[in-house]
């Protein structure tokens, strides 16, 4: 792997150039791609697995797989689609594998001060825990929908499910979440 270092004050490369440079073997370009997309990949894994260490492991694997498959990446848009798809598939496979360890979710000690003051951290933690209780495919539908703000057709393409199945997963998941929140007194069911 080439180790061409980017000058400190160089303007940020256009996304297309970045992918092309990474394909050509530029370590700096690939590192920039990792930094640009790490929050998306890690976030999906973390919200799905509810484990910081397992999310880190999975996210690293996704980027190693990206490095092995750079030749297949056609454009920056394709890159994002590829990362979401591979991350989603690996998350679902992970919880079905012996590597999965269901952990007691910790408080958000990894990002002290990241929470806006007006947010209720208990509610956020509860919502994440309830989402993590959903079956794998509905869980990924919900995570993609609300972390990435994707429409249902995009989600269907990423996880390769019929659109109606994705709609059904989302509707039933939200119903289940409302029901569980109502049981805990957080909302009133109508």
């Amino acid at each position: 792997m080439q180790t061409a270092a980017a000058p400190a004050n160089a303007p940020r490369a256009l996304a297309d150039d970045l992918v092309a440079q990474a394909r050509a073997g530029s370590e700096a370009a690939f590192a920039e791609i990792v930094r640009e997309h790490q929050s998306m990949v890690f976030g999906l894994a973390y919200h799905f697995l509810q484990s910081w260490s397992q999310a880190e492991e999975l996210a690293q694997e996704v980027f190693v797989a990206l490095y092995q498959n750079l030749a297949r990446i056609e454009s920056p848009r394709h890159l994002v689609f590829w990362l979401r798809r591979v991350t989603s598939n690996r998350c679902i496979d992970w919880v079905r594998s012996p590597r999965y360890r269901r952990e007691v979710p910790m408080n958000d000690a990894h990002e002290p001060g990241a929470m806006p003051r007006w947010r209720d951290p208990m509610l956020d933690a509860l919502l994440r825990r309830l989402v993590a209780e959903l079956p794998p495919q509905p869980r990924m539908v919900v995570t993609l929908r609300f972390q990435e703000d994707l429409d249902l057709a995009e989600i269907a393409a990423i996880i390769d499910l019929p659109l109606n199945t994705v709609k059904s997963h989302l509707r039933r998941s939200l119903d289940a979440l409302r029901r569980k929140l109502a049981q805990r007194g957080h909302i009133h069911e109508s």
Binding site: V34, E56, Q60, L123, L127, V142
Partner: peptide
Amino acid sequence: ELRQALKRRTPSSGFDERVL
């Protein structure tokens, strides 16, 4: 509320170096 609770998360510092 779900959009707020499921925001993207940044991994621990040095993640890119660990991948490389």
